[in-house]
Design a protein around this nucleic acid. Structure first.
Lengths: 345, 345
DNA sequence: CTGAAAGCGCTTACAG
DNA sequence: CTGAAAGCGCTTACAG
């Protein structure tokens, strides 16, 4: 930038007013009467000089950055979560824009301490934080919360009441299994998305269990296997399920990525989907509609989650205590080919 | 945050020194001798109070934000570019972190003016800008460049020498077609990724032409069709190519998304891939390895592009004139099933 | 309706 | 080796 960057002083001089007036006019401060002529002169002077108020000075004097940050922890579920990043960011920036906020993106890499984001908050780089992939042993997080720093979790941290935004996993899984039940399946297996240490994993399993019980079917854990985010884990889990006698006629795989691995196992066993065995996934990743057969799955609204997280956070920042700080969004069952509904219904 | 947020004054008081000394110690200013005892006292005081320097004050006094921004224009190629966002951001933040910079993400939505990002620069919210999806009729961009505001384009804008980072499209397309030639194909069609108004599209077509000519084959535009980012366009383009007599034995589709549409057209015509017709894509989107047949394609290094863009931009910001401001990264051919190499070689 | 002054919380010449 | 002072560029009570 040219060093002759204009300041409010230059605008004041050119318009023949004080800096106070310049600020009042440019910020459109209400309840202050300034003659239309003066107002006009200031606006023209600013325009003519190409004046833009300096953000750093404004931040300092106002004590606000008008910025929120998305903290993105790189866990073992990294690739899995990456699939949601574009949608999440779009929702997040959409809401932020509506309130006049900027968005900082801050990944925490594997070689950084988990609480490397703290400086962002304590050093006042941002007015609030959205944390994706938080860990329950994160003391720094608890401290920030205790210090009333505005915080929203993407996902859930059991045993805290930190504001959070997530999908209703129980409902989503329930809808998937319900769908298979309606199609006539009675021996339905499940492969989880991840180990049970992950809350989402527990909840999806719970949805499976409840759907079964809702239809008067017993929950049978010999029909359950544990995935671990990736295809490989899905392949193995499905192999193991196929070793059952009889094998299930349908399987709910609580992750599309894992389902893709499961699909490969089925192909290797020359089992056709959905004729030989029906499959329903979870997440609705971009690839779900392109694979063969196209995957019936549970859509996770990344955009909506991003929007809700940003909106909740900004409310907290601006001090209007929202009635509900635990936001749970509904999922949507997307029926494609792998469940067999297209043929049997 | 509690209102009793400590300032450098508090640290100075507790350590029994001046604010100058606090600043000198905390910033580790070189060539200034401060007794180890004093240094220690300051550090302890800061620690004890939980002191973090205020970012806004620092920015103001230093005249630097230590922030770079990624401007993400929502064009018709939005979904296409979204596929690269996670990788791009990871590379970008990786380099930024190495230099101590933060990253602002700023999408420009369809209902905003194309130059809505200007305030970010002029208002000093950021020290530099990376623009993804720039348009050649963007006057504001030219003005910023003329005013020496640090700028890097992701992609290319012909007829300017604005620093930019991109993939070598000619080389990438050439490698794809070369691969088909080696497999024995002599009648090779092409479907572009987008209309020729897009530089990348022109360049990929150029790579196709050169590869053909390198093997002494004539460039024949009756074998070329134009895609438009999405599957639908690929489906139509392939239909049109199949109407040829004889149809090509192989097609280079300069976009995986478009290739997925082309694949569908082939399926509808009961043409097996690669036996009936061979296909090579471009981009290596996440879905490429999951579709059937797995797509042979040209990998675009999103991470590397992000890293290079951030590094180049930060160099420009910090004033060390880089030797090369037009960075072109190499692509990599990923051989999977759709080209037939696995069978014929 | 408008202006002079203080102050946000730092850093950095400049003295001593 | 350390401190008092100025200043970054704004906004905002407070007078007039």
């Amino acid at each position: 930038m040219p060093s002759e960057r204009p300041t409010s002083r230059d605008v004041a001089r050119l318009a023949g007013v004080s800096r106070t007036t310049v600020s009042l006019v440019l910020n459109n401060v209400p309840d202050v009467h300034i003659s239309p002529e003066t107002r006009q002169r200031v606006l023209e002077a600013a325009q003519q000089l190409g004046y833009y108020p300096d953000a750093s000075a404004r931040r300092l004097v106002r004590g606000k950055t008008h910025t929120i940050a998305l903290v993105w922890h790189r866990g073992p579920d990294r690739l899995y979560r990456d699939a949601f990043l574009p949608g999440l960011l779009q929702g997040l920036t959409g809401a932020a824009r509506q309130y006049g906020y900027h968005v900082l993106f801050r990944p925490i890499e594997a070689d950084e301490p988990d609480d490397a984001y703290v400086e962002l908050a304590r050093g006042r780089h941002t007015d609030g934080l959205i944390l994706s992939g938080p860990r329950s042993d994160d003391d720094a997080l608890i401290h920030l919360y205790q210090d009333q720093f505005p915080l929203v979790l993407h996902g859930q941290l059991p045993e805290t009441d930190i504001p959070s935004v997530d999908v209703d996993n129980v409902q989503g899984a329930g809808a998937a299994v319900e769908h298979l039940l309606r199609l006539g399946h009675r021996r339905i297996g499940m492969i989880t998305n991840a180990p049970l240490a992950y809350t989402a994993s527990q909840q999806r399993l719970e949805g499976y269990r409840r759907a079964l019980e809702g239809w008067g079917l017993p929950y049978d854990d010999t029909l359950v296997r544990y995935g671990n985010f990736d295809e490989e884990s899905g392949l193995r889990a499905m192999e193991s399920l196929l070793a059952l006698d009889p094998p299930p006629t349908a399987v709910f795989v609580a992750s599309d990525m894992v389902a893709i691995g499961a699909l490969r196992a089925l192909r290797e066993h020359n089992l056709r989907v959905p004729e030989g065995i029906a499959l329903v996934g979870f997440d609705n990743i971009a690839a779900a509609r392109f694979i063969t057969p196209a995957l019936t799955t549970v859509h996770v609204p990344a955009f909506g989650l991003g929007w809700a997280a940003a909106e909740l956070l900004i409310r907290l920042i601006e001090g209007d205590r929202p009635a509900e700080t635990q936001v749970r969004l509904e999922t949507e069952l997307i029926v494609r080919e792998s469940c067999g509904a297209k043929h049997s219904v």
